[in-house]
């Protein structure tokens, strides 16, 4: 059986008359940092939503480790080791950084529903273990000083880090990042690159959407370029940079891709 491979075949997602994703196929291999790029509105986020179960594609198949995950719910997909972040950061704004990261431990926790009513020694141990993991994430993402701070009050750059930390607390096999550099300054972007490499070194496969071409070229091993929901090119960053169709798509939309 194929190991830790994500294979999309002819995935199509429509919104009314609009085909947001059009017969898209690609394959992410274990250990890669894989990039999806394309102009605004190309359908990148929609592809991610189809992989993570937020939308169900009308056609096609999404195979993860040989299993069809199209049509599963988001939490079932998380349970299989795929975790994502959002383009528009989605954190639990009123809760502290540590509690936000703790949410990633939900599926790893062995507690049952009755532990919400009656405590047991096993529950206490389980709580401690999971909070210890949160501590590790806080260290890894250099967030320790913010542990008790409500996340909604933090700057954008730190919120992004918290969101990735939360996803990593799940101990995913495949981490999906939707425009992780959006809204970051140069220094923060550089730190993000480092973090992504460190995550890959832990054995996690990374699939990311990026708008910033420079960043994509630096960080990814392999790329798929989409426009109007269709794949227009794929290859290594070097190959993509030389591809005339890509240059055309990007130049054609250069003025409106400041988001």
């Amino acid at each position: 059986m194929a190991h830790n491979e994500l294979i999309l075949t002819d995935v199509t997602k429509r919104f009314g008359g609009l085909t947001a994703v059009d017969a898209l196929s690609f394959k992410v291999e274990s250990g890669q940092i894989y990039g999806i790029i394309g102009p605004n509105g190309a359908g990148k986020t929609t592809v991610f939503n189809c992989i993570t179960g937020i939308y169900k594609s009308e056609e096609g198949s999404v195979l993860w480790r040989g299993e069809e995950i199209r049509g599963m719910t988001p939490y079932q997909i998380v349970d299989r080791g795929i975790v994502r972040t959002f383009q528009t950061i989605r954190l639990f704004g009123q809760m502290s950084v540590a509690e936000n990261i703790m949410s990633g431990r939900h599926i790893k926790s062995a507690q049952k529903w009755w532990h919400g009513i009656i405590p047991t020694p096993g529950k206490k141990r389980d709580e401690l273990e999971n909070w210890k993991n949160v501590e590790e994430q806080l260290d890894f993402f250099k967030l320790s000083e913010f542990a008790a701070t409500p996340v909604g009050s933090l700057p954008y750059g730190i919120q992004r880090r918290v969101e990735i930390a939360r996803a990593m607390a799940v101990e995913p096999t495949l981490l999906i990042l939707d425009e992780p550099a959006a809204g970051l300054n140069d220094k923060e972007t550089l730190e993000l690159l480092e973090t992504i490499f460190k995550i890959r070194d832990k054995g996690v496969t990374v699939l990311l959407i990026e708008h910033d071409m420079d960043m994509v070229m630096e960080v990814t091993d392999y790329l798929t370029v989409i426009n109007f929901g269709k794949k227009i090119a794929e290859g290594t960053p070097e190959e993509i940079q030389k591809n005339p169709a890509v240059i055309e798509a990007y130049l054609g939309s250069e003025d409106d891709d400041d988001e």
Partner: peptide
């Protein structure tokens, strides 16, 4: 706080 975020982190809401 955020149902979609909760689902996306593995919670069967």
């Amino acid at each position: 706080e955020d149902q979609l975020a909760a689902e996306s982190i593995g919670i069967n809401t």
